[in-house]
Design a protein around this nucleic acid. Structure first.
Lengths: 214, 214
DNA sequence: AGTATTCAATACCTATGAGTATCGTACCGG
DNA sequence: CCGGTACGATACTCATAGGTATTGAATACT
């Protein structure tokens, strides 16, 4: 009677569920997110969730793991690609700003995870590990990049790395609440000027100055 | 038989409930926070909550209102108190760091509110208003302070204000998740160096340099 | 003092959503 | 072609927590 509908591969199901979970967690927040909604957003039902994950916390854990692999703070690699110091600076600022504004789902998810980590010790443990290693990696890359370009940092690379991480989270939050005033150009300016402040050398920028968009 | 126990004044009940709500919201997050727990933390029961507030959302709204009055970002006034540019800078950094580390309840509540504002349009509206006006006020104060001290800002005051707001939120989040590595001295350093970066003039600092506390 | 009113405590209702148990069907080995 | 298994859909349980109705005691009013 009914022609058999080919089943989706398990791996694919898992992937879609994670994507949907990222979306819904970012949109509603972890607590307010409903497993039914996540499942339906992925095109499945709750049964699929429980056959792929142990439960709601495990779903979040898997997301953190996945985000860790995709590297919560991209842009480190970008530093290597440029040659002129000024360009590196502007480019990095633009990359961060683009991430915050255009991939707002991930940014909001990131904030959500951080917030969740502040509450739940279990989440915190894994999150802090990821966070620290990314910070170290970012610091190393920044230091190496600066050395290669002949610019000098006025602060330790680790401190700059932390500053960038914190600024990224904070700006994501500001943009999430007030995207009109905290727009992409503004975010770019903030990051660029912050970076410029800790560099010594020829670092003139081509980024547009502050624009009031009220 | 039983000697009448004097009743607590209504205003006082409201105050205690708000304090308790701030604590619990900060600790558990808005969604995970239970009204019973809040009431109990204040020394009352749920009945007290509903006779003083319309419900859970109204409780949060009242908190936002209260926090707005207490000024989410203190420190602006502190700028006026100092005379030497370097001292102003360090002092401001220390004030911010102290707020984040010692009054972590409020900082975490603040992040929670911001996060909540990103989700709930109703919350967003009032929050953005508060946030913008505080930003403006901070920018004005900073500009005035710099002018008075004869130091020059390399970026518009509004941009610096946003940077500080974002950095404060971000550092609160980082400290909330990793208080060991993101300790008070580190926070102070980050804020101080960020400020120093956007100032032109004699702004030598006396703040301790980066210390690795891993 | 006696009565009315305020307002928090208590008991209750009800919707919700995480988790579970079972079922049905597509895939796979024989 | 035919069981067996994997795995997602479906139907259910059950604890929880926001919200409401009622009660009872302390204050205010006359």
């Amino acid at each position: 009677m009914t022609t058999p509908v080919p089943r989706v591969r398990r791996e694919e199901v898992r992937r879609r569920l994670l994507d949907a979970a990222a979306e819904v967690f970012a949109e509603r927040g972890y607590e307010a997110a409903r497993l039914d909604e996540i499942a339906h957003a992925a095109g499945f039902t709750k049964g699929a969730v429980y056959s792929n994950f142990a439960g709601k916390p495990a779903l979040l854990a898997a997301l953190i793991e996945q985000q860790a692999r995709k590297q919560l703070l991209v842009g480190a690699v970008e530093v290597r690609a440029q040659n002129r110091p000024g360009a590196v600076l502007d480019h990095l600022a633009e990359v961060v700003a683009r991430e915050i504004v255009e991939q707002s789902t991930w940014s909001r998810l990131h904030v959500e995870i951080a917030q969740r980590a502040a509450h739940d010790p279990e989440v915190r443990e894994t999150y802090v590990d990821v966070r620290r290693s990314l910070r170290d990696q970012l610091a190393t890359t920044l230091a190496a990049g600066c050395a290669r370009l002949g610019v000098e940092l006025t602060v330790p690379a680790e401190q700059l790395a932390l500053t960038l991480q914190a600024l990224r989270l904070g700006l994501a939050l500001e943009h999430g609440t007030d995207p009109e005033q905290v727009d992409r150009a503004t975010v770019t300016s903030v990051v660029a000027s912050t970076l410029r402040g800790v560099l010594r050398g020829h670092t003139q920028s081509t980024v547009d100055p502050w624009r009031d968009s009220a």
